[in-house]
Amino acid sequence: MYKIVAKEKLCPAVDFMKIEAPKVAKKAKAGQFVVVRVDKVGERIPLTLADWDDKEGTVTLVAMQVGTTTYKLAALNAGDHILDLIGPLGLPSEIENFGTVVCVGGGVGVAPVYPVARALKQAGNKVITIMGARSKDLLFWEDLLRSVSHELIVTTDDGSYARKGVVTEPLKEVLERDKQINRVIAIGPAIMMKFCSLTTRPFGVTTIVSLNSIMVDGTGMCGCCRVSVGGITKFVCVDGPEFDGHQVDWELVFARQRIYCDEEKRSLELWKAHQCQHS
């Protein structure tokens, strides 16, 4: 059992949770993820670490309510427990002094970008961060991201806050403006990561994306998370989650994300109906 020590709503459908997991916190590195199972009938889902605190013995997760597990998580409060938390899994982000890096975070992907940007800044990079959301009420952690960036650009799709538009527009401008961008890291919805990769391709800038595939064990055992990178099948859980965005077969990523669309919908409807009965 893993105790939730703090919980906060970052936006209507996005929850911040600090969970007691001292051993995981001790080993965690930027870019890694954990697998959680909320209760005994629960599914195992991967969530990329948004932060951790070795001294406090906690890990921080930020999850958007999209399916049964994330709705169940959102329904829990500080003092409650989740049944299983397994990690740290996956390979850490490659962190070194590349020179100038651009970190792009979209939607809930802003959370896992934070520790990566922080580590890159600590390693001596000049960090330019671009964060985007559909609208103002879906934006969070602007100040945190600013604290680990030399420059921060904020976008909203609908223009309700900061710059109107999607993250690829300022990304392109930055690439054109600063001729010396050494690396781009993009974390967010798959479609955003695909378009970030397409945007950087003509500039020949290495672009790292963090894939959030469907997983079961998260340790290389099931192969549910397979992805094709440069024509070779890789497992996101052990070979990733970060890959060269220019090499990823995005159509396969999109297709495999939809495997359980119908079942996920059915499961969530049932859970919601069940919640209504009991409230």
């Binding site: 009938v41 629960g42 599914e43 195992r44 049964t68 597990t69 079961v216 064990d217 055992m221 099931c222 192969g223 549910c224 397979r226 992805v227 094709s228 099948t233 396969l252 297709a255 495999r256 939809r258 495997i259 359980y260 079942e263 996920e264 059915r266 499961s267 049932l270």
Partner: peptide, 30 residues
């Protein structure tokens, strides 16, 4: 081999046995 609907036996059996997908939707794993 990576098309949707192609499983490794490990994944297929893990979903069924460990995660009890045969009891979906009572259990969450499909």
């Amino acid at each position: 081999e990576n098309f949707n609907g192609v499983y490794s036996a490990n994944e297929f059996l893990t979903r069924v046995n460990l995660m009890k997908a045969y009891l979906f939707p009572e259990y969450d794993t499909p």
